[in-house]
Design a protein around this nucleic acid. Structure first.
Length: 503
RNA sequence: GGGUGUGUAGCUCAGCCGGUAGAGCAGCGGCCUUUUAAGCCGUUGGUCGAAGGUUCGAUUCCUUCCACACUCACCA
């Protein structure tokens, strides 16, 4: 007694851990193995409740994590939770035997158990497995957050976002609705793959470690290859590699691309995120617009939700998406005529509206900033925005009507946020070289996000790339949209966090 | 980077005008064979995010720092 037992009475976290380790020893002394190798399950919790009519009185074998325990001397009720839900257990000393019941007395919320027993209904009508046999499958030593619930009201919810993100396993255990988001995420990825596979697209994998980074405007993560003694970059996009494949003769390719961008983090940005890029030879951006529209429609259908609510806006994917040119939108929202506008007139306009700008901005930058500030938030219903300034789109073909200030590029906006970026891909090698050289010059002048000149990519284009339509979609945002989440952290299982300081 | 807010027990939270901390759940010891936020009796558990400062005295006031959230900027 005395010292050790006095110690055991304390219940700081460390003491709780010590107590539970002691329980493991006791359980072994009683002849039970706290960490056995397997357990045969006949029914998931959901199957027991759904098929109750058939199963009543029959023997089933279920397993899961103990989430509630209500002991009443020689009998107890408990709930176990498995992937699909919860089922109540009834354990009585008579049925499982003195020894197993004594072992059960040492169990805690968070332990994983298997039970074989009869399906029944309790006096209050809850479907329950009346245990004949109890098997401990894994003894927990670290206490779970205790979340209680009554009549649909949750008490003491595990709500601290930092803890939820850092210890996602706990979040998944005690906040079951979190699971649904990730199940839906998987469904969206599956539907995406089916969408492209069924259209004869080839799924490909291209390097994540790249000697040069390109295909987007962003700062990269840099790493080092020891045996090559060379720096490599984590890709910011896979665009330039997919185009090489188009050159190589794969006419339709797509890739789920985990991209890495060394930039700010917020509700819409995580340093690593998932895009899908797809390229198709012999088509232009009009064709791709139709494809993208069909893509969103097919995802909505796959999820069985042709209409969704997001941030207070009702979106009906069965309706056609709006298509507006930049010129249109500037005329409508800002009363600016892009055909005659220039830096001076933009500046004058900005002065009038007290909009802060950098006098060094060129035509393209002005247009970009004014669009972001004044037009983007207005685009709530799905809207394709067509024709971006050439200066900010070095990989897109200029407009076919001869207005060389603009390129054939579209972005898709929903609820004021961008989801898709696409071009009629530039396949004129001379033009391409010029544009990337001009990006290179910008970078030399300190624009860290300007694109790099990748000679091998130029060589590929020089080899001859067919006319091609290309699209990138930010999948995390698509998932946010369809799961109703407003932070990217809530659709990533392990969002980026500052490393935890373990003192 | 700026602004706002938060940080107290394993979890969820109180703590007034400064006098070194409370509750519920969990834990521990009991009672209890149809409970379900089970109940009842008893009980342990805290470097009050960190470091300074003011003060006789700081969880409380001030400063700095750290972490997180929200937000703005930057950024797809």
């Amino acid at each position: 007694m005395d010292e050790q037992q006095a110690q055991e009475k304390h219940s700081t976290l460390e003491q709780i851990l010590a107590q539970r380790k002691e329980k493991i020893a006791k359980i072994r002394e009683m002849g039970f193995e706290p960490y056995p190798y397997a357990f045969e399950i006949t029914h998931k919790s959901k199957a027991v409740t759904e098929d109750f009519a058939e199963l009543e009185g029959k023997s089933v074998s279920v397993a899961g994590r103990l989430m509630t325990i209500r002991r009443m001397g020689k009998a107890a009720f408990a709930h176990i939770q498995d992937t699909e839900g919860r089922i109540q257990l009834y354990l009585s000393k008579n049925d499982i035997g003195d020894n197993a019941y004594a072992m059960f007395a040492l169990l805690d919320i968070g332990d994983i158990v298997g039970v074989r027993g009869q399906v029944m209904k309790t006096r209050t009508g809850e479907i329950t497995v009346k245990a004949d046999e109890l098997t401990l499958l894994s003894k927990n030593i670290r206490p779970l957050p205790i979340v209680k619930e009554k009549d649909g009201v949750v008490y003491d919810a595990f709500a601290d976002k930092e803890l939820r993100y850092r210890h996602r396993y706990l979040d998944l255990i005690v906040n079951p609705e979190v699971k649904d988001v990730f199940i839906k995420r998987a469904a969206i990825l599956r539907a995406t793959r089916e969408f492209f596979d069924s259209r004869d697209y080839l799924e490909v994998e291209t390097p994540i470690l790249q000697p040069l980074y390109g295909g987007a405007n962003a700062r990269p993560f840099i790493t080092h290859h020891n045996s090559l003694d060379t720096d490599l970059y984590l890709r910011i996009a896979d665009e330039l590699y997919l185009k090489r494949l188009i050159v190589g003769g794969f006419d339709k390719v797509y890739e789920f691309s985990r991209n890495f961008r060394n930039e700010g983090m917020d509700r819409n940005h995580n340093p690593e995120f998932t895009a899908i890029e797809f390229y198709e030879a012999y088509v232009d951006y009009f064709y791709m617009m139709d494809l993208v529209e069909n893509y969103f429609r097919s995802i909505a259908e796959a999820l069985g939700t042709p209409q969704i609510e997001y941030q207070g806006e009702s979106i009906d994917f069965s309706k056609p998406f709006a298509r507006r040119t930049m010129a249109d939108l500037f005329r409508e929202y800002l009363d600016i005529d892009l055909a005659v506008a220039d830096e001076k007139s933009f500046a004058a306009w900005a002065d009038k509206r007290a909009f802060e700008y950098d006098p060094k901005w060129n035509y393209g930058q002005f247009l970009d900033k004014l669009f972001d500030e004044f037009i983007e938030p207005k685009l709530q219903q799905p809207t394709f925005v067509l024709d971006y300034p050439k200066a900010i789109s070095p990989l897109a073909k200029v407009r076919r009507d001869g207005d060389t200030r603009f390129v054939e590029r579209f972005e898709l906006f929903i609820c004021g946020a961008e989801y898709v970026n696409a071009f009629s891909e530039l396949n004129d090698p001379l033009d391409q070289r010029e544009r990337l050289e001009s990006q290179d010059r910008l970078r030399a002048l300190g624009d860290e996000e300007a694109q790099t000149l990748d000679e091998d990519f130029i060589r590929a284009i020089e080899t001859g790339m067919p006319p091609t339509g290309g699209v990138g979609i930010g999948l995390d945002r698509v998932i946010m949209l369809f799961t109703g989440q407003n932070s990217i952290k809530d659709v990533l299982l392990f969002p980026a966090m500052r490393p935890e300081k373990l003192s």
